[in-house]
Amino acid sequence: MTYIDPQVRANAEKNGIPHAPEEVIAERHALADAVCGELQHAGLPAYVEFSNAPSEGRAGARVSVDTMEVPAGGVFVGWHPGESLAEAVLGFMEPDRLDLREPVIEHGERVGSLMDAAIKSVLVLAGFRTRDASEINDLASGIHVAGRQPRQWFLAYILTEGVLGLISAIRSFDPSGDDRGARAGISAEGKARLTERGIRIVQDGLPSLADDDRWELARVFRRLAGAMHSQDMAQVGFWGADRSPLELADELCLLSDRV
Rank of each mutant, 00 (worst) to 15 (best):
T67Q: 02
V236K: 10
V259H: 08
V89P: 00
A241Q: 05
V70A: 14
D5V: 01
E56A: 07
V220K: 01
R223G: 13
A210W: 03
A118Y: 02
A218C: 02
L248P: 01
N52I: 05
V70Y: 06
S208W: 04
G112Q: 04
R97G: 00
P71D: 05
E23A: 07
R214E: 12
L85N: 01
A192M: 08
A192H: 09
S51Y: 13
M228N: 02
P150W: 15
V236S: 09
E161K: 14
F92K: 13
R129G: 07
F76T: 00
S187D: 10
G43E: 04
E135L: 14
V77T: 01
E247Q: 14
R97M: 10
D179C: 07
S172T: 05
E161Q: 14
I201K: 03
L206R: 07
D116G: 12
G240K: 12
M93I: 04
R222W: 10
E196R: 11
S244N: 05
I158Y: 11
L155N: 08
I25M: 00
L206I: 13
A86T: 09
P81R: 13
G16V: 06
R62G: 00
G181T: 06
L209D: 02
R110G: 05
A10Y: 01
E106G: 14
K14T: 05
G91N: 08
L125I: 00
A249Y: 03
R101Y: 12
L123H: 02
A241P: 03
D242M: 04
G185Q: 06
L248D: 00
D212I: 15
E69F: 12
S51C: 08
S256I: 13
F128P: 06
D204C: 11
K14R: 11
D174Q: 15
D132R: 13
A12W: 05
W215T: 03
A249K: 05
F238A: 12
F76A: 02
D212S: 15
G240P: 06
S244W: 10
V145Q: 01
G60T: 00
D242C: 03
D178A: 11
R193D: 01
S64G: 10
A20P: 11
L85E: 03
I4Q: 04
S84I: 04
S141Q: 08
Q203K: 15
V236D: 08
T2E: 15
A12R: 08
A12P: 06
S168K: 03
A88G: 02
A86G: 06
V124N: 03
V104M: 06
E22Q: 14
